[in-house]
Design a protein around this nucleic acid. Structure first.
Lengths: 147, 147
DNA sequence: TGATATAGTTAGCAAGGCTAACCAAATATT
DNA sequence: AATATTTGGTTAGCCTTGCTAACTATATCA
């Protein structure tokens, strides 16, 4: 057994907790009827507004061919719309449709309510601990660009 | 825009933070050369000890056929070993090989060190906030079985 | 003994990741 | 102006990982 420092131990528990949290919540997203990668891309479009395929691929940390296919699927279900950019006719502008926006909000609401139900069992103090930790974690991750 | 309560807002930020954290760390795991589902299953075997295929599938929240194939892949790379259970000859016992154990530890070490490097930039107080939050989150999730 | 339940595997499908190779439009070079 | 290069996106084809349905082999129960 390798010995871990205090901080490494914290890192390990943090990682494991994040995995379990997402695993728990993922079930809710399945109820939207939209596969995870598609749901996630749609979410970027709804909250980030219309954008090009490359931008969307970058936002999702995925290669363009992968995103192209995801957009194909979303488009065929009428959840997003592709139009060619007027200023650069190579580029496409992808935007969420009304239907896509509505479905995404429903799903998000379900997921958030589910998680909130769990959090509501905690004390005010515990929730504050989580809020503080979120701040700290984001701060720690923000400095990752330099590595 | 739908209005969110305080707690729903916290839930939303927690979810988003977990996603970003795992996305950041995932890159490290790729360096092991083992695909994610395989790495995760191997991890269960290394830390949980030998177990049956059904147990392993349950631990990973995956159906038996899915796990059967993952074990095939791990076995063909000599990372795990399948033996038939003496007491129940239908069942198999799956265990990590020496090689599998070693590789897993290397990868875990890399991942944990990477995360720890980020956490080390925080103050002692901030790390304590994270530690407290982990406790609280696990408590909140533990009560999920009843739903 | 015969019926049923359980452990795992095989087959075949869909989603989502990748690289390589390509087309078309825009931009740069000469 | 003509040509070369770069850029945005798609297509083709591969791998991994999820699923269900259908199967085999062993255990268990009536």
């Amino acid at each position: 057994m390798a010995k871990l420092t205090e901080i490494e131990n914290l890192a390990d528990r943090l990682h494991s907790t994040a995995i379990h949290l997402l695993r728990l919540v993922r079930v809710q997203d399945a109820a939207t009827g939209i596969a995870p990668a598609r749901l996630s891309a749609l979410s970027v479009l709804v909250f980030g507004g219309p954008m090009s395929l490359n931008q969307l691929a970058q936002a999702e940390q995925v290669r363009p061919p992968t995103m192209s296919r995801i957009v194909d699927a979303l488009e065929s279900e009428d959840l997003v719309r592709r139009t060619t950019d007027k200023r650069d006719r190579r580029a496409v502008v992808i935007e969420a449709t009304e239907k896509g926006t509505a479905i995404l909000w429903q799903g998000r609401k379900r997921r958030v309510k589910f998680l909130a139900k769990h959090l509501s069992r905690l004390s005010e103090v515990e929730r504050q601990q989580i809020a503080d930790a979120i701040q700290a974690i984001q701060k720690a991750m923000a400095e990752s660009k330099r590595d």
